[in-house]
Amino acid sequence: MNYKYTYESPLGTMIMLGTLTYLTDLFFVDEAYAPSYDDAEYIEQLTGPFEVTKMWLDQYFSGKKPFIIPPIKLEGTEFRKSVWAVLQTIPYGVTTTYGDIGKEIAKQQGKDTMSAQAVGGAVGHNPISIIIPCHRVIGSNGKLTGYAGGIERKKYMLDLESKHT
């Protein structure tokens, strides 16, 4: 069975998708690359993983560093999963660049370089917004670039985190 839950955040409506065991997607309804899904195939219910996700989001948006991470299941290419794994290591209130992530992925793969553009594509298709903190990735010049949920949301979250670190 597939489940969904609608969450009203300070930044707009978010949708959680998943199973009774895992959160598989978390996204703003109007974000770029939001997954297409057939509402008829999902039961609207606050499952265990969604309860933990809701708790995480409530803590996050109240300015606290969340202490519990919901169980997630990521589906994607091995490259994307490797980028998403690096994203999960970015500490609360800290930013990194696409280039730095590219260097880390290149190192893991035994390569000299990795395209920051390829990394950007994987970051942009992150299926679990905020919890996998793609909003903490900035351009090499320090500018806020490329957030599927919109630059204003990215700025809001980075400001929120900087106030509480």
Rank of each mutant, 00 (worst) to 15 (best):
Y60F: 15
V123N: 00
G63A: 00
A85V: 00
I105C: 00
V83G: 02
A34I: 07
P66L: 00
A122I: 01
R80P: 01
D30P: 06
A118G: 03
F50T: 01
N126P: 06
Y22N: 12
L57Y: 00
T113R: 15
D30T: 15
D100Y: 04
P70E: 06
K81Y: 03
A122N: 02
D30E: 15
E75F: 11
I72K: 05
V83D: 04
E104N: 03
I43V: 15
V52M: 07
G110M: 02
E44T: 13
D112V: 11
D39R: 08
P91Q: 07
V119P: 01
T53C: 11
P49M: 09
E78G: 09
G102Y: 00
P66N: 02
G110Q: 08
A32K: 14
A106Y: 07
P91D: 10
G102S: 01
T21N: 14
L23A: 04
E31P: 10
Q117V: 15
E44Q: 11
E31N: 06
A122K: 00
L20E: 14
I69R: 15
G63Y: 04
F27R: 11
G124M: 13
I15N: 12
G121Q: 11
L46G: 08
Q109A: 15
D25C: 07
P66M: 06
Y33W: 15
P91V: 09
K73P: 00
Y33R: 08
D30G: 11
G76Q: 05
Q117Y: 08
K64I: 10
E41T: 06
E44A: 10
K73C: 14
M114S: 10
I69C: 09
L17C: 04
D58L: 06
M55R: 12
G124N: 12
H125D: 13
Q59P: 06
T19N: 14
K103G: 05
P70T: 07
L26G: 03
T24F: 03
D30I: 04
E51K: 14
I68S: 09
A106F: 07
V94L: 13
P35E: 07
V119G: 02
P66K: 03
S36M: 13
Q45S: 09
Y42Q: 04
T77G: 14
S115M: 00
E75D: 12
P70A: 09
T89I: 00
I105Y: 04
Y60Q: 08
I68L: 13
L87I: 06
A34T: 05
L57T: 00
T47C: 05
K81Q: 12
D58T: 01
K73V: 04
Q59Y: 05
E78R: 07
P70I: 09
A122M: 00
I15S: 13
F28G: 11
K65V: 12
T47N: 08
Y60L: 04
L74K: 09
G110K: 05
G18S: 08
G63S: 01
A122D: 02
A118H: 11
I15D: 11
L17M: 01
N126S: 15
L46N: 09
Y60I: 02
M55W: 14
V52N: 01
P127R: 09
